[in-house]
Design a protein around this nucleic acid. Structure first.
Length: 359
DNA sequence: CATGCGTGGGA
DNA sequence: TTCCCAAGCAT
């Protein structure tokens, strides 16, 4: 990676360099490209303006493993509901989880809330302006710490691991826009499939392109496909429409999110015997079909059983009755929205989802 | 250090 | 339809 410190080299110069192209990637080329092609995103400062750390942080957390298109409406909704880090810190856990519902990877939401509280309680409401300080906060790892330090505080940090950052920053005396320029390059030109190499400011020095193997990189580790699990979900309805819900354990799958009671999810679950797992005795009726859902590491099929409860039926231990109107404020993951939609024969009121826009 | 952890959209 | 993801983090 690093340039050889001595001039004497036995390797012949690459053919492409002889054709007049750059032999190595220059930060100037990348930044010139960025000046012309930078994307205008809600959490980004306009040229010349200073990025707001709260917005940068919020967007970076949301964008972890998540597309810009998915993040846009959630980012807008969060800013509207929690305009400042203080507002977010003082919000209830339920409000935060509910606002995050549908975005996935819910540990991010728990850490987001914990981070906001730490910033307020330990840093006077100001985000630390160094990678090290940021890295110490919940939900902020090496990548995100570097990204925030560079974007919000102008630190010469490349949003990669520390070793690469050190090499690159020394090699090019990197400052300012480099992090965002790299992100835009990766998002719009250097895409996983069919990269637009002809438009790339680093076309010349790209080794993969020179070999014609750009689509073979990066090499990805094969991941094993998860085995199908099955289970049953129980939608209990009172005469006034209230639904029986409970909250999942704070950690693990869908941690802290709301759900209707379900059986265990197992590969050999027999939904014909599902009624044995019901939260209370009733005439449970099987809704037609199943709910299919794919998690990160396994697919799931849930049978849905619907039962009526008396108006004065108490909620079983650890559960609660939620009015139909109150469902909108529950942190229901998409899986549970599918279950309720099937059980109630209607779609739940959609969370405000902005019109599709391209990232 | 390998694994667990969601979702919607594009190809 | 089916496949493959997308600005990682915590443990």
């Amino acid at each position: 990676m690093a340039e050889a410190p001595v001039a004497a080299r036995s390797d012949p110069a690459p053919v492409l360099a002889a054709a007049g192209r750059e032999a190595k990637p220059s930060a100037a080329d990348l930044l010139a490209w960025y000046d012309r092609h930078r994307r205008d995103l809600p959490w980004r400062a306009r040229p010349g303006e200073t990025a707001e750390p709260y917005r940068v942080w919020l967007s970076e957390i949301m964008l972890q493993q998540t597309t810009i298109a998915a993040v846009r409406p959630y980012f807008a909704a969060f800013l509207d509901r929690f305009p400042t880090v203080e507002a977010l810190a003082s919000a209830s856990s339920e409000a935060v989880m509910s606002a995050w519902a549908g975005l996935g990877y819910y540990s991010r939401a728990r850490n987001l809330h914990a981070c906001a509280r730490a910033v307020v309680a330990q840093h006077g409401g100001r985000f630390p302006d160094t990678e090290e300080g940021l890295r110490a906060l919940p939900g902020i790892g090496p990548y995100t710490a570097a990204a925030i330090a560079a974007i919000a505080f102008g630190r010469p940090a490349a949003a990669v691991d520390g070793n690469v950052e050190r090499v690159v920053s020394r090699l090019h005396r990197v400052e300012g826009d480099f992090a965002q320029a790299l992100m835009d390059l990766g998002a719009t030109i250097c895409t996983p499939k069919r990269p637009a190499c002809a438009l790339c400011p680093w076309l010349g020095p790209c080794r993969a392109r020179q070999a014609g193997l750009q689509e073979n990189y990066p090499v990805k580790a094969p991941k094993r496909e998860g085995l199908l699990r099955r289970g049953a979900a129980f939608v209990a309805v009172k005469p006034d429409g209230a639904i029986l819900l409970r909250t999942r354990p704070p950690k693990g799958l869908l941690g802290g999110m709301a759900e209707v009671p379900t059986s265990e999810w197992r590969g050999d679950y027999d939904s014909a015997k599902a009624v044995l797992d019901a939260p209370f005795e009733a005439r449970w009726r099987r809704a037609p079909g199943v709910v299919r859902h794919v998690f990160t590491h396994f697919p799931l099929e849930l049978a849905v059983l619907v039962g009526r409860a008396a108006a004065d039926a108490p909620a079983p231990e650890g559960m609660r009755w939620t009015s139909r109107a109150g469902l909108a404020d529950e942190p229901l993951p998409n899986l549970m929205k599918k279950v309720l939609a099937l059980a109630l024969g209607e779609a739940l009121p959609e969370r405000p989802k902005a019109a599709r826009r391209r990232g």
